[in-house]
């Protein structure tokens, strides 16, 4: 089984926890895994992307163009930026939160209102969720990561028990219940 995942968002959104959980999951499944992150300059509010690959054997740590099974987007606009990475028939799970980029903030550009429509016309299965509100409903905006992991697990047909175990092994014990609730809510998306 080979799964290529792209986690995209805005620097500072803290997408790193999601990739840590996925790495743990791969290990529990006995799969090889490589992750590639962005550090440095783009963490200052720029567009960021994390690559996650799992398979019996992984070579390149970077997901190749047209080879991602799923894009997990933590921000609406960012979901459209990485379309060329998706395979035909790929899935985009998008947190519909909007974070305005600088050209929009200073009025030079408009935040496109039809991003998701544009993505859909490319024959891509778009799953929308207000992951931020869902996370807040279970206790904290910080659980957005795990809500998204829940949705991803459903659309990638991941082993639910193993994913739960991966979450247990990754998040601090005192936030475990909240995160497990977030995972379940995400799985319902």
């Amino acid at each position: 089984m080979k799964t290529n995942i792209l986690i995209v968002g805005v620097g500072g959104q803290g997408t790193l926890l999601a990739s840590r959980i996925l790495g743990r999951y791969a290990q529990l499944k006995g799969l090889d895994c490589k992750l590639s992150e962005v550090h440095g300059m783009s963490q200052r509010g720029g567009s960021v992307v994390t690559h996650v690959k799992m398979a019996d054997k992984v070579s390149s740590p970077i997901v190749a163009l047209h080879d991602a099974d799923i894009v997990l987007s933590f921000e609406k606009l960012e979901s459209a930026r990485y379309l060329n990475f998706l395979k035909d028939g790929g899935v985009v799970v998008v947190n519909t939160q909007q974070i305005l980029p600088m050209p929009v903030i200073c009025g030079m550009k408009e935040y496109p209102t039809d991003v998701l429509e544009q993505v859909k016309t490319r024959g891509i299965n778009v799953v929308e969720a207000d992951a931020l509100s869902i996370a807040e409903s279970v206790g904290s905006a910080k659980a957005v990561n795990v809500v998204m992991i829940g949705a991803l697990s459903k659309y990638m047909n991941f082993d639910k028990d193993k994913m739960t175990e991966a979450i247990k092994g990754t998040v601090p014990p005192k936030f475990l219940d909240m995160n497990l609730a977030a995972f379940e809510k995400g799985y319902e998306i």
Binding site: G45, P101, K109, P112
Partner: peptide
């Protein structure tokens, strides 16, 4: 080589926090 699509999206450069 596979065809790439290009959408006209506002860029998101890094900024002062």
């Amino acid at each position: 080589k596979k065809e790439n699509v290009s959408l006209d999206l506002p860029v998101r450069p890094p900024v002062l926090c």
